[in-house]
Design a protein around this nucleic acid. Sequence first.
DNA 1: CATTTTCGTGAACCAATATTCACACTTCCT
DNA 2: AGGAAGTGTGAATATTGGTTCACGAAAATG
Lengths: 217, 217
Amino acid sequence: MGKKLTEAQREQILEAGIAAFAEHGLHGAGMAAIARDAHISVGVLYKYYADKEDFFQACLRHSLSALEEALAAVTAREDKLLRYAAGIIRALGDFCRDHPSHIRMYHQITTASGDRARALAEEIEAVTARLYTAYIAEAQAQGDLRRDMDPRFFAFFFDNLLMMLQFSCCCDYYRARMALYEGEGPWNPERMEEELLKFLESAFTWERTDIVHRDER
Amino acid sequence: MGKKLTEAQREQILEAGIAAFAEHGLHGAGMAAIARDAHISVGVLYKYYADKEDFFQACLRHSLSALEEALAAVTAREDKLLRYAAGIIRALGDFCRDHPSHIRMYHQITTASGDRARALAEEIEAVTARLYTAYIAEAQAQGDLRRDMDPRFFAFFFDNLLMMLQFSCCCDYYRARMALYEGEGPWNPERMEEELLKFLESAFTWERTDIVHRDER
DNA sequence: CATTTTCGTGAACCAATATTCACACTTCCT
DNA sequence: AGGAAGTGTGAATATTGGTTCACGAAAATG
């Protein structure tokens, strides 16, 4: 009908794209289905975006800016390592609840290969990687972190746990997998955050000494 | 032409399928390409397997039996928790080196959704989930594990770290991501295993007490 | 108000690919 | 050896899905 698209519609298109890429993968998502979900025609997708790849890039940038915003708030606020970790965990948990399909899309992206994978990893992970590494190195210098480990490994393991937390929250496969560990007593998000913090606290601070050791039974 | 397939050829077909599913995903892998890689015609795929789904299931079962074998050896051998953890880490590291495409295929599988995801998670993860949970609960009863945390969470976090380790070893995206943490000094597998064990050891054994605490600066 | 430009539409086109099937070659049986 | 049964082949078929484009409707222009 010729009327120009509103800002809300453009947003709707990107969200429809994210949902589709999240559900069916970069290759599996269909442009026709995306257009239908966004209540526009396929033609308009190709007016605004050169092709499927270009559209996907737009969806990704749209999502990343929301994520960066959520994390920046925590980084500005906290300075003690464990409080920082707690803040990040909380912020990511909220993001999972607000935008589950974004997380699912990130997960789909991890199946890329070759140069494509490198470029995407750089774009998506560079922010948090540098953020965590700098923070953790600083904490070690301040004495808030054990000194017998390379801080880069800490940042890496920390991020590994956070990624799995997000996937376990949003992706069907990882949800089903988590259910296997839950058994009869299901976990709630608060409980999960609390236990992960306990786990991290000891991994962060405890150092093996020759004085402290348990019986060798 | 017309000669019956040898056992080696049947193996070759399954490996070609695994490589294809690993590279392009369940949906993206093409039967024609699989046949070409396995040096057989498409027709034979449909003689041995009803359809693509059936063939995929055969590939999965083939791979899972190899994985179970690798893990069973460790479970039978070790009984002390940290030695067990070290054995599992080592065994999975070896498996990654020997069969990287199998790990990549597992990763692709995690993008499934709905009932499919549940069924696959059950099939793939149930073995390790039960294994780790039982082992860790036992270790806690024996006093090898801190008592202030639910053992199920330990098993879960432990497996989370192991999954990420495997993906970081085999999948392009996760390799690129790990490189961001490595910086200029790349890590070798031994170093990684060692650092992960240190990380786990403190998380496993350290308990917060009111006596020990650091300055609040 | 007439004309031009911009924008959205969706049927049509085309490339990719899962699946089938008539054929040919091998093996087995008598 | 001769025929029957079994097995692999790959061109042909049908379907799916990305992309294009001629059309019509809305805004902009004068």
